[in-house]
Design a protein around this nucleic acid. Structure first.
Length: 475
RNA sequence: GGCGGGAUGGCCGAGUGGCUUAGGCAAGGGCCUGCAAAGCCCUGUACGCGGGUUCGAUUCCCGCUCCCGCCUCCA
């Protein structure tokens, strides 16, 4: 295992050594399902999916937990606004998220727990924190339970914050906190919130604070100490700072590495629900195919900011199609077995790049190099080199979740069960064109080709006869 | 006010104290082709500004400008 990863808690790239040899445990802060996902959310899912695949490639048995926050302030506010149960809004958005992940080829996590399903685990944690003197009941009978940040010296270490330099939380003065920075583990019931959002507890009826769920669920599914915890860069403070404070104050080891994903900006600003500058996957699918969206999201380094632009997205699509075309031609020419993904080998540059904090840009450069070499081999009639290059490209693309011949992508190319019919019609037309070419009737030949092009069928003449691709396929 | 990240050739995007200084997209030229398409070959010398360290800096240090994120819900 030569993998190195950037760890937010040390702000440095460190050798990654799993806690348990042969296995890796990951926790990803998933979404607060108060609204449909946008592509910024999806980026995190894709980036973590690549990490997960790379760990798997290293032979690790990956236990990957990605939670869903299905109760929070905004969700409850929306429930009142829309006069429907908060959980129905949460569930609807959770389904949308799952569909988006599926269309981008994001593998299912090992488990996807919901916050509301883990109230007992949260209450246990609260009791432990109160017992150890790290949490206290609000003095105003609100039923709130707070974490005492002043009583935990490590507070602020993850994000590099010092309590005294922080801006005071605006809700400080009017709530019974000992320090304005203290955060809620549990929130007492309020008459102004949906009454179906509360649970009975030893502290009265109430609902969970945001941060507590992750500490409780990570503990339940990954144990007291686990390897990697992550999420978007915007979660470092306060969310992750508060999580680590709760867990460590309770005596748990918690995360050994913190891997945070850069933001996706639109128009120079973070894409966010509250700013309203969001673009969803449905919009992107009108421009490019899902695999191309994935390529766009997966190639820049995971910690760098992506400033979304349609032009850049389309460039990514062109780059992906170059690789896709190469692999498809190889499979058509040499047969699927010759270019089977399992026969592919990762080139050294690729592996070195991925091992160095997942340098996906450099890794993709290596794939393009092999693609070029493979194309040259094809031009030279060297089928052996052509085939092995294609298999390697497939294997490396598979690490990105982007093997162009994977059923994930080929089964969504369109055509459906009429594909065979379509192919037969195209072949018939091309036979006529070949006949015209044979008698040097290029006018007729070109008309036939133009008509096919107009119908969305691209024709290429190769030394082995014509090949064609459909517009939805672009290979 | 505090913490963190960033400014790279027409565009996207890695990276590095000097080595032919990624890769892609676009562009121009060439090869191939009846013409195309696809592919291949060639071309393009970039690192925000001002200092400093150094034989040598885009890469290290200092200062500056601008941009982004967090400190409140946020992937």
């Amino acid at each position: 295992m030569n993998l190195r990863l950037h760890d937010t808690s040390t702000r440095s790239v460190r050798d990654f050594t799993p806690r348990v040899s042969g296995a890796a445990s990951l926790y990803l802060c998933g979404l607060t399902v108060q609204a449909p996902p946008h592509i910024g959310h999806l980026r995190g899912g894709v980036n973590y999916d690549v990490l997960r695949r790379w760990l798997t490639h290293h032979g690790l048995d990956v236990n990957f937990v990605r939670n869903v926050t299905d109760i929070d302030d905004k969700l409850l506010a929306k429930a009142l606004e829309q006069d429907r149960p908060f959980w129905s809004i949460a569930y609807a958005n959770e389904r949308l998220l799952a569909a988006d992940y599926a269309s981008l080829g994001v593998l299912e996590p090992t488990y996807e727990p919901r916050a509301t399903g883990h109230i007992p685990e949260m209450l246990t944690l609260i009791a432990e924190l109160i017992e150890k003197g790290h949490a206290y009941l609000a003095s105003d009978d609100s039923g709130d339970v707070y974490f005492d940040v002043r009583g935990f010296p490590e507070y602020g270490a993850l994000s590099g914050q010092r309590i005294d330099h922080m801006q005071a939380a605006p809700d400080g003065p009017d709530r019974a906190k000992r320090d304005p920075r203290d955060f809620a583990l549990w929130k007492g019931e309020k008459p102004t919130e949906p009454q179906n959002a509360f649970w009975d507890t030893p502290y009265g009826r109430g609902r969970p604070g945001w941060h507590l769920e992750c500490s409780a669920m990570a503990r339940r599914y990954l144990g007291d100490t686990f390897d990697i915890h992550g999420g978007g860069m915007d979660l470092v403070f306060p969310h992750h700072e508060n999580e680590v404070a709760q867990s460590r104050a309770a005596g748990l080891g918690f995360a050994r590495y913190w891997v945070h994903i850069g933001m996706l900006n639109l128009g120079g600003e973070k894409m966010s629900k509250s700013l309203g500058n969001v673009i969803d996957l449905t919009a992107l699918r009108k421009l490019v195919r899902p695999a191309e969206v994935r390529y766009y999201l997966a190639v820049p380094h995971y910690r760098s900011v992506i400033d979304y632009s349609e032009a850049a997205l389309k460039e990514s699509a062109s780059a992906y199609r170059r690789i896709e075309g190469f692999v498809r031609r190889a499979a058509e020419r040499l047969g699927a077995d010759e270019v089977h993904v399992d026969r592919g080998v990762l080139c050294a540059d690729f592996t070195a790049a991925m091992d160095e904090d997942l340098n996906t840009s450099a890794a993709m450069a290596a794939i393009h190099e092999v693609t070029r070499e493979g194309n040259s081999a094809a031009d030279a009639g060297n089928d052996k080199a052509f085939g092995s290059a294609a298999a390697s490209v497939r294997r490396m693309m598979d690490v990105f979740g982007l093997d162009p011949l994977s059923p994930q992508w080929t089964e969504t190319d369109g055509g459906g069960d009429l594909r065979g019919t379509l192919d037969a019609l195209v072949a018939m037309t091309l036979e006529q064109r070949q006949a015209a070419r044979a008698r040097r009737d290029y006018a007729t030949s070109d008309v036939l080709r133009d008509q096919l092009t107009a119908a969305g069928v691209q024709v290429e003449d190769t030394p082995h006869g014509p090949r064609w691709t459909y517009e939805t396929q672009k290979g």
